[in-house]
Measured scan of single mutants.
Amino acid sequence: VFVDDHLLEKVLELNAKGEKRLIKTWSRRSTIVPEMVGHTIAVYNGKQHVPVYITENMVGHKLGEFAP
């Protein structure tokens, strides 16, 4: 499973602090992992960042699938 390192670091850091804030990313190719559930990730679609709230059903899919 591929997840960009910088994105995973941000998610794990927020989980350690117990925070839930918006994470901006250009990494549409990253796979959604269970650690991301409950976070809102702003995924770049080529024009703007689209906020995507991550749920359990999204695990295993790519971030780009949810930012048309």
Rank of each mutant, 00 (worst) to 15 (best):
V1P: 15
F2K: 06
F2L: 12
V3G: 04
V3T: 06
D4C: 09
D5N: 15
D5I: 15
L7Y: 00
L7H: 01
L7N: 01
L7D: 01
L7A: 01
L8K: 04
L8P: 01
E9K: 14
V11E: 01
V11F: 03
V11M: 03
V11S: 01
V11D: 01
L12D: 04
L12K: 12
L14P: 01
L14R: 02
L14F: 05
A16W: 06
K17P: 01
K17R: 11
K17G: 07
G18C: 11
G18E: 06
E19M: 09
E19Y: 05
E19F: 04
R21I: 12
R21K: 10
R21Y: 09
L22T: 13
I23E: 02
I23D: 02
I23W: 01
K24Y: 15
K24T: 10
K24V: 13
K24P: 09
T25E: 01
W26F: 14
W26S: 13
S27W: 07
R28K: 09
R29A: 14
R29S: 07
R29F: 14
S30M: 03
S30H: 02
S30I: 02
T31F: 10
I32K: 00
I32P: 00
V33Q: 04
V33S: 05
P34N: 14
P34Y: 12
M36R: 00
M36Y: 05
V37T: 12
V37L: 13
G38Y: 08
H39G: 01
H39S: 02
T40E: 08
T40S: 09
I41M: 07
I41G: 00
I41N: 00
A42N: 04
Y44W: 12
G46A: 10
G46R: 11
K47P: 06
K47E: 08
K47W: 09
Q48S: 13
Q48G: 10
Q48P: 02
H49A: 05
H49M: 10
V50C: 14
V50T: 11
V50L: 13
V50N: 13
P51M: 07
P51R: 13
P51T: 10
P51Y: 06
V52G: 00
V52P: 00
T55M: 13
T55H: 14
T55D: 14
E56V: 12
E56F: 12
E56M: 13
N57I: 07
N57Q: 10
N57K: 10
V59G: 02
K62N: 07
K62T: 12
K62F: 08
K62A: 08
K62R: 13
L63H: 00
G64W: 14
G64N: 06
G64C: 14
G64P: 00
E65I: 08
E65D: 06
E65Y: 12
F66R: 02
F66I: 06
F66E: 04
A67H: 04
A67T: 04
P68F: 10
P68G: 11
P68H: 07
